[in-house]
């Protein structure tokens, strides 16, 4: 496989293979937390953080633990455990520092664990045989692409009167 340029991967994560509207990953939060822009932005921030960290940690675990021990078939189980631990970490930080955001995110914060987008990034990294830097870039750009779509969708839902005005 030809090494893909980092910029190409970045644009892929951001637009060409956007997680929400092209690949249909993470739709639960797309429909659930886009009622107002503030919680959409907060959720996106948490997803960017978890996605980036999950890309790094899962790359390290896959390359330096699972491959040498010939245990690739355990990748699904080990990745989901990594993501669950990271989400727990984010939850502690948000609850301590930004309690208002914690309340508005509600059930969706622990649900990042079962957000397909996060596990999707990690699995796609392995399937595409990305290197460490490529995985990192794909994780960040995937998170940013998610943010763009979430903020757009929540802005549309927050201001329906604007669109009604256009229709008149």
């Amino acid at each position: 496989m030809v090494e893909k340029a980092l910029f190409a991967i970045f644009m892929e994560g951001l637009f060409v293979k956007n997680f929400l509207i092209i690949q249909f990953l993470g739709l639960c939060s797309f429909l659930g937390v886009t009622k107002d822009t503030k919680s959409a932005a907060g959720m996106s921030g948490a997803v960017i953080f978890v996605m980036t960290l999950a890309s790094i940690v899962s790359y390290v675990i896959y390359t330096f633990v699972l491959v040498p021990l010939d245990l690739q078939f355990l990748r699904l189980i080990s990745f989901i455990v990594v993501i669950a631990a990271l989400v727990q970490l984010v939850e502690f930080v948000v609850r301590k520092n930004i309690p208002s955001l914690y309340r508005s995110l509600g059930i969706y914060l622990p649900l990042i664990t079962t957000n397909c987008a996060v596990l999707g990034v990690v699995l796609l990294n392995v399937m595409n045989e990305y290197s460490f830097l490529q995985s990192l870039v794909f994780g960040i750009s995937g998170g940013l692409g998610y943010t763009i779509v979430m903020v757009m969708m929540s802005s549309i839902r927050e201001k329906p009167q604007f669109f009604l005005y256009l229709l008149q």
């Binding site: 078939f73 699995l123 796609l124 399937m127």
Partner: peptide, 25 residues
């Protein structure tokens, strides 16, 4: 593993969504 071994074309079409059953709500 079963799908990869016995129905490779279906496995290729479904791609990342087979492992993603794990996060199916």
């Amino acid at each position: 593993m079963v799908m990869e071994a016995y129905t490779p074309s279906l496995y290729a079409a479904l791609g990342v969504f087979i492992p993603l059953i794990v996060v199916n709500c």
